[in-house]
């Protein structure tokens, strides 16, 4: 099956907490991590993320695929920034060259050159730590939060009934959408369509995805009419609704929320104090200059 629920009930730290408490902590963690580029401050966040992962009760076989996918994605972009230097220059003005490699040929008079600088190397490492910390925490969500509690979790966080139920509904129809997508894929493959052989520029590639995108979209639109009817016919949205599931905060949940808020407030204060910007060890610069 294309889409299958990753969630299972496990003996794990993350599932010990109320999902609302965990979501609040996650949001605090997310915004705090985004506030920094200084690897000395990012390192604790990386540690926190690893701590949650290691106590999550997940087996490597369960998370291998998403980790390999996201890991390669993060490494690819870190490497790209490192090689081109683009996307990082606004964080530093001066670069200290470690080594320069010039190609033995020229292209229309331009000689491709790779400049390895202290700043570029350290930026790549900082970027990796920052994005990977967030990715680890995000990957935990589908594995650790019970899909049946999505609606009540968001309702409990103060969202209106309709929006909170939309979360539930999304979770309910993701497998259906996945099944429809697989059916369309099969139908088009049976007509000789080979997704893996799609080539051309970005726009051309998107155009060639039409045989998949159009039927899946049309099917979703047709299906949504029934879904809306089914909701209307069972009195959805007439007033405040009762949620079947109940969530009750325990003391430990307040502790977790407290820690999250402390982390966020501290991060904001550190940010306002002008700390947390991109940082490179002085010793490394001295070594580069000396070398």
């Amino acid at each position: 099956m294309l889409v299958a629920w990753r969630y299972r009930k496990r003996k794990s730290l993350v599932q010990w907490f109320d999902p609302r408490a965990w979501v609040i902590f996650y949001l605090c963690f997310l915004f705090s991590t985004l506030a920094f580029w200084d690897i000395r401050l990012l390192a604790p966040f990386f540690t926190i993320a690893l701590f949650w992962l290691l106590t999550s009760g997940l087996q490597w076989s369960e998370i291998r695929r998403p980790f390999l996918f996201i890991g390669s994605f993060v490494i690819f972009f870190s490497l790209l920034t490192f090689l081109t230097g683009r996307g990082s220059q606004e964080l530093y003005k001066v670069e200290h060259l470690i080594r320069s490699y010039a190609a033995p040929f020229t292209l229309l008079g331009w000689r491709p050159t790779l400049n390895i600088t202290v700043e570029r190397a350290f930026f790549a490492v900082s970027q990796f730590v920052r994005v990977f910390s967030i990715a680890v925490m995000t990957i935990l969500i589908p594995y650790s939060l019970n899909p049946a509690y999505y609606g009540i979790t968001f309702r409990g966080l103060g969202l209106p009934d309709k929006i909170a139920y939309a979360m539930d509904l999304t979770m309910r129809f993701i497998p259906t959408f996945g099944r429809d997508f697989q059916l369309t894929m099969d139908a088009q493959r049976a007509r000789g369509y080979e997704l893996e052989k799609i080539s051309g520029g970005l726009i051309e590639q998107v155009r060639k995805l039409g045989p998949i995108i159009v039927p899946v979209t049309i099917h979703a639109i047709i299906g949504s009419e029934d879904i809306i009817d089914a909701m209307d016919l069972r009195a959805f949205g007439i007033g405040p609704r009762t949620w079947l599931e109940e969530l009750h905060y325990q003391r430990r949940d307040f502790v977790l929320i407290g820690i999250g808020i402390v982390i966020l407030v501290t991060s904001v204060l550190v940010g306002f104090a002008g700390l947390g910007n991109f940082w490179v060890p002085e010793a490394l610069i001295r070594w580069a200059v000396g070398g």
Binding site: D168, L169, A235
Partner: peptide, 29 residues
């Protein structure tokens, strides 16, 4: 009951699905 139950069923679990209308009516749990 609509033609395609796949599109009519809104709850992820059976008990949530059966309770859906009653929840919307705001009845006690």
């Amino acid at each position: 009951v609509l033609q395609d139950p796949e599109r009519q069923i809104l709850g992820t679990k059976v008990i949530n699905e059966v309770a859906f209308g009653l929840e919307n009516m705001g009845l006690p749990r």
